[in-house]
């Protein structure tokens, strides 16, 4: 336990924990709705944009966060209009996002050729996170942005839940379904941009989808599910950071994903076992009205 006490003495660790706390809560909460609305792959697409935006900012020496947010928010708006209007198929969307990734590769090479090898960690940082390199200023920004995102999500939670479950009925009750959907994707874009520094663009999906996937197995009450998703994301980031501190060969983002995956296996495995055993033991009760 002395090791853990020593952990908090380091500024880089405090910054990492601070930034990760905010981002985990926001990502976990957003992830609940992503899974509910079947928009997990929209988040994947946004993470591609975040990758390319991030390396572009690196390559051209621009303020990373602002560029990221602009790029991803733009992508979110486009995605929302695509989903609402035409039926852009699998292939079209995939082709578009492959192109975006390809552009990112170009920016990485521009960045690498413009900087000495000791600095090329920037590229890896965009891909897989650089959580132990977060400054106190960046940590503060992360917390503020996360508070904003979480507040936004909590405010729209109820109507968004209704719209996600039954859009036609929600619209008849006065809910602006399209506007809410767009606002939600914009929040996801902002959270994804912030999350790049913690998990890296390639692993954002883990922090958003997995906690919700676990929570789904644990509860059917919506607000409990939201809280659980946020909580599980938080537990995963803290344990991941601690694990990585204690065993430095493990990169922190890997440690977080490992914890998340382990929790996921545990939850789905337990549910499957419980379900198969109750099916064989208990007779189904008669249902009224059938």
């Amino acid at each position: 336990m002395d090791v853990l006490n020593g952990m908090f003495a380091h500024e880089f660790m405090r910054n990492a924990l601070l930034a990760s706390t905010g981002i985990a809560l926001a990502a976990g909460l957003a992830g609940y709705f992503l899974v509910l609305r079947g928009q997990v792959f929209a988040a994947d697409a946004l993470s591609h944009v975040a990758f390319t935006g991030g390396v572009a900012a690196l390559a051209f020496g621009v303020n990373e966060l602002l560029g990221l947010i602009v790029a991803t928010v733009l992508a979110a708006v486009i995605l929302n209009s695509l989903a609402v209007s035409s039926r852009a198929g699998d292939v079209e969307i995939g082709v578009l996002f492959a192109l975006i990734l390809g552009l990112g590769v170009l920016f990485i090479s521009i960045y690498v050729s413009g900087h000495s090898t000791s600095n090329s960690q920037g590229g890896v940082g965009v891909l897989f996170g650089s959580v132990f390199g977060i400054s106190s200023g960046q940590a503060r920004t992360a917390v503020l942005v996360s508070i904003g995102a979480v507040t936004c999500l909590l405010v729209i939670a109820r109507p968004l839940l209704y719209a996600s479950v039954d859009a036609a009925a929600a619209a008849a009750q006065g809910i602006r379904v399209g506007v809410l959907g767009g606002a939600f994707l914009v929040v996801v874009a902002v959270v994804a941009s912030e999350a790049v520094q913690v998990t890296g663009a390639l692993l954002i999906l883990g922090l958003m989808a997995t906690p919700a996937a676990v929570a789904r197995n644990l509860t059917t009450r919506p607000y409990v599910g939201m809280a659980l998703s946020a909580g599980i994301a938080l537990v995963a980031t803290w344990s991941g950071l601690t694990l990585s501190y204690v065993a430095p060969t493990l990169p922190p983002s890997f440690a977080m994903m490992a914890v998340l995956f382990g929790l996921y296996l545990l939850a789905t495995g337990t549910v499957t076992i419980v379900r198969t055993s109750t099916r064989t033991r208990v007779k189904p009760s008669p249902v009224i009205g059938e």
């Binding site: 909590l154 109820r158 109507p159 839940l161 209704y162 009925a169 607000y223």
Partner: peptide, 22 residues
Amino acid sequence: SLRLRARDLVRLGLDGNRWGVP
């Protein structure tokens, strides 16, 4: 695939259009 409690779905009809969380 909707893992939402039936009761909670009914509740949405009551106040699902109000902002915030209950």
